[in-house]
């Protein structure tokens, strides 16, 4: 089954070229049952990555393009009067998919954003008084564009905290881009991707994650990291317990992807930048985009053993 994980990873790498680390992190995120926020410029392969993930994992896929006039109903679905039956019939919104891509989440109004974020948190939606469960597995990939911020509603810290990881794909290497240009159409490649992991297998893998051994020494390391952000004047505020839980879950999932039954400090170090960077803000940086360098600073400051 662990080989299936490797195969899934390879299959996505076939589509998203030269981004194996980001792909691995995205898989880690799914295994740790967390949601993913991708922050990058347009055209960097955010959609491709999410589509490839959906295909490989055999998930149903929906995309919601967030705009400023998007209403909660457009996400969750509405009840429409059916003349034939004389009753209101619920038409589920795009949220009722296993993998939802919320594109440019920061373009929507806070009201619509919170509809999505509530669904992410609760695993269910309530429309017209009726509570409807979301499918399982349920995984949200939200994207936002860090550059053009005009007319957007930046996610507040409390909502950023709902995402287990924040990734940034970045430009591909020259080699990867060359093979991208020389190769097939991406659509054609995507179509060729087959489901490698079924829902049952994914669920079983997700259940394996908490069983990965995190020793006392390792937990101490995570505590050192978290406490350092809380006690240092460099950070505006420290990491929350949700963040340390997320860090441990992500490190376990990463260890699982590394085919190991225990977590070592390197696993924590691998996932830490994407897990904590959107949760940290430098004390002297009111804009709050220095999270990545803070994560590196943190790793360099705290002894691993």
């Amino acid at each position: 089954m662990k080989d299936a994980l490797k195969a899934a990873q390879d299959a996505i790498d076939q589509v998203v070229l030269g981004k194996s680390h980001a792909v691995k992190l995205a898989l880690t995120c799914i295994l740790a049952k967390g949601h993913l926020l991708i922050e990058d410029l347009p055209g960097m392969g955010k959609t491709t990555l999410s589509q490839a993930l959906a295909s490989v994992l055999g998930m149903s896929y929906q995309r919601i393009q967030f705009t400023s006039d998007l209403l909660p109903g457009d996400i969750l679905g509405t009840s429409v009067f059916d003349r034939n039956s004389g009753q209101f019939v619920f038409h589920p919104g795009p949220i009722f998919a296993e993998l939802v891509l919320a594109d440019e989440i920061n373009r929507a109004t806070p009201k619509s954003q919170s509809a999505l974020l509530e669904a992410m948190e609760e695993g269910q939606v309530t429309v017209d008084g009726a509570t409807r469960p979301l499918p399982d597995p349920f995984f949200v990939i939200a994207t936002q564009n860090p550059v053009s911020q005009g007319g957007t509603f930046a996610l507040p810290e409390s909502q950023l905290d709902r995402f287990l990881m924040r990734l940034s794909l970045g430009y591909p290497s020259e080699k990867a881009e060359k093979s991208l240009l020389l190769g097939d159409d991406r659509r054609a490649r995507l179509d060729r991707v087959e489901a490698i992991l079924g829902h049952d297998e994914l669920r079983r893998l997700q259940a394996l994650v908490p069983q990965v051994n995190a020793s006392e020494a390792l937990v101490d390391y995570i505590l050192r990291l978290v406490n350092h952000t809380r006690n240092s004047d460099v950070c505006a505020w420290g990491l929350s317990p949700r963040a340390s839980l997320g860090l441990l879950a992500a490190a376990r999932a990463w260890a699982l992807l590394e085919q190991r039954s225990y977590v070592i400090p390197e696993d924590v170090q691998a996932v830490l930048p994407s897990v904590v960077s959107h949760r940290l803000r430098a004390a002297n940086d009111p804009a709050g985009h220095g999270g990545d360098s803070l994560a590196l600073w943190l790793l360099n400051e705290v002894p691993a053993v």
């Binding site: 400090p265 170090q269 790793l299 691993a304």
Partner: peptide, 8 residues
């Protein structure tokens, strides 16, 4: 060991 370096 470099700052923050893990065992592996």
């Amino acid at each position: 060991a470099l700052p923050g370096e893990g065992p592996r």
